[in-house]
Design a protein around this nucleic acid. Sequence first.
DNA 1: ACGAATGAAAA
DNA 2: TTTTCATTCGT
Length: 507
Amino acid sequence: MVGMPSNAAHFEVDDYGLGAVAQHNAAVRKQESSPRQNDVKGPGIHHGTYLDDDAFLHNPPTPRSTTETEGVRTRSGRSTRRTDSPFSTGNARGSKSPAARSKKEKKSKVLEKAKTPKLTAPLSVLTKDLDAPVKDMDAWVHRSAAVRREEVEKRHGYVTRPMNSFMLYRSAYADRTKQWATQNNHQVVSSVAGESWPMEPEEVRNQFNEWARIERANHAAAHPEYKFSPSKATKKRKSEFSEDEDEASDVDGDPDGEYRAGGRSARQHRQREPAEVFYLNDTVGFSSNPYYAQQGWNMPPQQHLGYGHPGHTLPSNASFDARSMTFDPQIKTFVHTNAHQQYSGYGAYIPQETRIPTPNSQHGAQSLGGYGLPGQMTTNDLFGSSRTGTPAMAQQQQYNPYGQSVYQQQQYLPFQNNGGANPSHQQQQYLYEHQQYLQAASQPQAAIDPGLEGHAQFSASENHFDDAFAGLTSDGTFVNMPEYFPESMSPNQTLAPRWEPSAADLN
DNA sequence: ACGAATGAAAA
DNA sequence: TTTTCATTCGT
């Protein structure tokens, strides 16, 4: 059921460069775009909190003081490479002592961090015009059960935990962060990501939260018997490799007492699988294809592109619903035709109340791609307030006087951990959601884009994404799936223009 | 083998 | 409340 749709709101998010993903996925799913409008409620939603101030459009968050400084604002154009990379001084935080993290230590760490902020804006802003691609996490979380099982095999049967929102975020921006920081150290990436995360606009965090939920649901579907079971032993985690029964874990459950994942059984070792990670094109802005800047894309009015709200910028690329895109054979790219309609500067932010994408809404046509921010439905509509991480939570982002967002402890209003949450329950919940999702996906009606019906024969355990990505290879190309990509098009091609900031936009 | 981040889930 | 572990890969 469900209503659906909504494509409107997505513009907002896109601005953070995530839109490309949407487009990409939309293209994949859609094969051919069919126009269709969903109703969307409220496109112009916005948070009163920070949207009203136009000042932010052109003024970045004030960098404050001394040390750090502007990362963002100044940059007029890419040329401004942000030298502001904080690392100049060395990492303050890095100094922190290793090892034992007692809470106390942890705290000190935090403090230290607070004292030496390095970021003046979130990564989605700071890195928006860097060449490094943002990984397509949407595609990632939609890996099919088959692919997931393969991964398990590669790991020797060990079923890893699904990534949480932050891990997904870190992963998505890892390359960009490295570029921005000009360092290849993942510890730095983690630190920066950690600092950036709370600064990200609600839309972005919500998107990642949603992806995390999808990931959990798909993970649960692929590994129904999986149960997280951390080793109590102090052993440092992974070690070994196992040999031993490796695969025991997954399917059937643990034969012996040791169940699954974790524990003793084989854990680990990272195989650096190439993992299929898709890169977003646009956002990505490959330097290799500067070409976009010139293409005459229908971009949203640039004058509105600025900082959408304090600390956040704009669109690195506009997003739009898949349905609004058309494929231009000449350039082999999808072009959207009505992006501007919603670009009212910021008017388009998702309401904080809830408009959270739900699995159901996502898949349908609308999309996720769209950004995920589906209009109308709320999580509660579908699942009640059940899941804990439901972001419906009120995360209202707040900003300090400098325009920087302030992290707020999220309060999971609806449900807090109170009793009812017992593990198995949760598992069930995931499965339930997954099913709901599948069910919605399998309904041709309004819920799904007609264009997808032909391809997707949803089975109990699969969904159309399985099909869509089944032919995806690690290098980002698809095989055996001509119908998804016209001609030579591959996921790595740019589907959308990369937004190129103009001087005016930047200051 | 460790770190460095946030968050989910278990103990 | 505390601990493990998701990810990554240079040290």
